[in-house]
Amino acid sequence: MIEVNNLTKEFSNKKGLFDVDFKVEKGQIFGYLGPNGAGKSTTIRHLLGYVKPQKGQAKINGFDCWSESEKIHGQLGYIPGEIAFVEGMSAVDFLNLMSGMRGTKSNEKRNELIARFDLDIKTPVRKMSKGMKQKLAIISAFMHDPEVIILDEPSSGLDPLMQREFVDLLHEEKKKGKTILISSHIFSELEDTADIIAIIRHGKLIKTQDVHTLREEMAKNIYEVEFQNQEDVHSLMNSDLAISNHEGNKATISVDRDVNEIFKYLSRYKIKKFDVPKQRLEDIFMKYYNDKEEHL
């Protein structure tokens, strides 16, 4: 479990984090969304114990991230935002080093991951492509089967196939009851994985949204219907259908009952065009990115 309470860190340039508050439960994937420079990596540095909070606290599994980080790190998998491996090592040397420092006994999961992500571990890190480095980072973050997984923009550089594989891996880990935090500045990276999405801007959390309820809400769809004759819209208005909007020969009908009933009613009229506008999750979140801009 990850807990961040009133976390505040102000840098000399007035940027930083201000009263950031959130919680990630076991078996949950927390999507941490925000534009460049919002403070995602700064929050994660607190979780890793690299920086000391000015105010507030970050805790993982009940331990303080700054003062008790050694107790946390045995059960922690981490992918840094800017991946820099130890220089002059091959991938296998690097993985051995991490296993050694963690005291990992079994190589079973590691070999499984290497096969799954199809990585040639003999390659010196220096000669790896961006995607290969990303795979190596993923393997090193998951190979010791950690309870808590923190990923700072993990899927940049992966091709769509590997991205798919990675999303699958996240779902498997989630099912096993892991606590997962993923940061990203693009919504689509989180869309398939996150249970909760929190949006951060200028160091402040501006919205925390449960993705599942959001999806349910959005599932209550609307139909946009364009009729041949404008009079039909008027007669529709007199019916008990829920018309949320109308203009000329177009009407927007909320789907508030059995779909068949609505169709039975509509079948009386000559219809020119019928549309189920798809509201995309991304648009909703985009709104927050932009909305706040105007307020500032």
């Binding site: 890793l48 107790k71 790190h73 045995g74 840094p80 820099a84 220089e87």
Partner: peptide, 18 residues
Amino acid sequence: SRFVDRGSMAYLLSSPVS
């Protein structure tokens, strides 16, 4: 210093070694 400057210290310190 090089590990801190280049960022690879992040990996060493993400392990349980203090």
